[in-house]
Simulated scan of single mutants.
Amino acid sequence: MAYEVLRAAPSAAGFTPLDEHLEQTPPTFFGAAKPVLHLHCPSAKLSISSADLASQPDFAALQPESIASSGDERNALVEIRDVDVWVTSKHLTLFSNPKSHGIQIFYPTITIHAQEGNAVLLELNLSDANTADEDLEFLQLRILPDAVATTAHANGQANGDSSVPPVKALYDAISACQELNPDPNPEGDGEEGGVGGFDETAPGATGWITSENMADFMDEDGNFRMPEGATLIEGDEEDVGALGAGAGRTRTADEVDAEDGADDGAKWQRTG
């Protein structure tokens, strides 16, 4: 789910202020009973294209009766006023008090965010995880904050520091909360493997000899052999190619048993 619709306006009492949260130093950011409020920008403005509003009724419901627009009719940018912006540890919320309507956006929905003049540009992926690439649905919006009610920065300033422009405070707050809510399926992760498509469960992927890849280490007579190009690790040193005396020579089962008898501390486990 990309977002949720709200009918009741958020309240500061429903959040833990960031400065108070930092003073408590809990073990995790989400340890507080309430979401942590990073920033509140009251009475901000949104700028969204008329085409996006026509295709997204939940976002269109944020606009008041009177609409200001610029550009040609097809690509007109619609300005939506009186939108409260709440940046919390769990969601980015846009709420229109005149319309008693809000949208609670999950951070992985935000695919792009950037500071653009006096606005923060957001691109939202409104499609679910099973949507094909060619059918993905995106929406762009710009948030133009006029003031900051509650904010905090890396240097410890908090509670509406007037020396930080509202647009910079908004950008920083969204950045911080995005880091706390990473995409659960980042690009490059395979559904059945690890990062970059590497599957640690594949036979031999970890370098260990198992029942699944044992055939690669045995010849037709059932004797152990080192596969071509394999790496021998001895102690803390790794030697590829220069394996020393006897490298590449097939040993018989009798030789292995003789070694077992000579050194009880280093046993081979042989099957078959």
Rank of each mutant, 00 (worst) to 15 (best):
L180R: 12
F217N: 00
S175M: 08
T231F: 06
I233H: 09
Q178P: 01
P227T: 03
M218P: 01
R251Y: 14
E179L: 09
M226S: 06
A13K: 11
R7S: 14
E65N: 14
T109L: 07
P17Y: 03
V240K: 07
G229C: 02
T250D: 00
T210L: 02
F30M: 08
N97T: 15
N130D: 15
A202T: 07
D128Y: 15
P10T: 10
T88V: 07
D135H: 10
F138G: 02
T25H: 11
L124Y: 05
R7H: 14
G265T: 15
E79V: 12
I143N: 01
T131Q: 09
N155L: 04
S50I: 09
S49H: 02
S163I: 09
L121M: 08
F59S: 03
S211K: 12
A247S: 11
T210V: 02
M218Y: 08
D135R: 01
E212G: 00
E220I: 09
F30L: 12
S66D: 12
P42L: 00
E23P: 01
M1H: 13
Q104L: 10
M1P: 13
Q269A: 10
Q269L: 13
T150C: 04
A173R: 03
L136P: 00
P57M: 00
E123T: 15
L53V: 07
A247K: 13
A9I: 08
G204A: 02
D135M: 05
A158M: 07
E259H: 12
A68D: 12
G194Y: 04
G190D: 11
F217G: 01
I105Y: 07
Q115G: 07
R249K: 14
T201I: 01
T151I: 00
D82Q: 11
T93H: 09
G14S: 11
G194K: 00
D82M: 04
V78I: 15
A230L: 03
M214C: 11
G71F: 06
A132G: 02
M1C: 05
N159I: 09
N155G: 13
E192W: 14
D52M: 00
A12T: 15
P108D: 11
F217H: 10
A44L: 01
H153W: 07
A242P: 02
E255V: 10
T111E: 09
P182Y: 00
A154V: 13
L144D: 01
S96T: 10
A173M: 07
Q140L: 05
G235Q: 04
I48Q: 03
Q178W: 04
P26G: 10
I103F: 00
V78H: 06
G235R: 09
I103C: 06
L232D: 02
S43T: 15
E137P: 00
G14L: 00
P57T: 13
L243G: 15
E116S: 15
Q269H: 13
V87A: 04
G71S: 06
I103M: 01
A12K: 14
E212Q: 09
W268H: 14
F217Q: 02
S162C: 04
D264A: 13
D133V: 10
E237M: 10
A129Q: 13
P35T: 12
A202S: 11
D128L: 06
A132E: 14
